[in-house]
């Protein structure tokens, strides 16, 4: 993200804001898609996120840190949404809306499949997994963000890892592509 664009955004220069949006929205969309299932939720959150980004730009000190800062805002908004609607202690299975793939001809996991697998997790466990494994937060931070205990975070992480391992085994056991998974 070029610095001059950010500088212009600080001045509320609309065309620059639009440009920043065009560059950043696809990335933030992916971020949201990890946490939220419904398109309308994602769009709501993105709207909220960009609004916040552009109006609270003065809180960002270092222009170069813009993208990370924007991503954090987006993640927090997603979590806020989830916090309202998700019970993080749930262990029972969520009814997933996506049907199974009828052909597993792929020889490696694509992004779609990844998301599909994640959606088989209960929402709470999935969130914790994403925060821990993909975003890299610690259990302490996750606990704070979601308003749960560290212990819950750890056990939800275990739940998701176990489930994911199972799912991977079931779907892709024939194709043992080495992504570094050892048995």
């Amino acid at each position: 993200m070029e610095e001059h664009l950010i500088i212009q955004c600080r001045k509320l220069h609309r065309p620059s804001q639009k440009r920043v949006y065009e560059l950043l929205a696809p990335k933030l969309y992916l971020t949201c898609k990890r946490y939220l299932k419904k398109e309308e939720d994602i769009e709501d959150t993105l709207t909220e996120a960009f609004f916040t980004i552009f109006t609270k730009l003065d809180q960002l000190k270092e222009n170069l840190a813009f993208e990370g800062w924007a991503r954090k805002i987006t993640t927090n908004l997603c979590l806020l949404h989830l916090k309202r609607n998700v019970n993080f202690n749930l262990y029972l299975e969520d009814v997933s809306q996506q049907p199974l793939a009828e052909n597993s001809n792929e020889t490696f996991l694509e992004e779609q499949d990844l998301l599909k697998l994640l959606n088989y997790l209960p929402e709470g466990a999935k969130t914790v997994f994403i925060l821990f494994a993909i975003e890299g937060y610690s259990h302490k931070e996750i606990a704070e963000k979601l308003g749960i205990s560290e212990g819950t975070s750890k056990s939800q992480l275990n739940v998701s890892r176990t489930k994911l391992k199972e799912l991977i085994e079931v779907y892709y056991s024939q194709k043992t592509v080495n992504y570094g998974i050892s048995k």
């Binding site: 949006y21 696809p26 990890r34 709207t47 992004e111 494994a133 998974i181």
Partner: peptide
């Protein structure tokens, strides 16, 4: 498992999504 998923998610290419223009209008 963690690395695997992180790698895949990092490799995922962002692209324009269908509601992009709508969202910009709202913003």
């Amino acid at each position: 498992i963690d690395k695997y998923f992180k790698k895949i998610s990092d490799e995922t290419q962002p692209k324009n999504f269908p509601g992009m223009d709508d969202v910009w209008n709202r913003v």
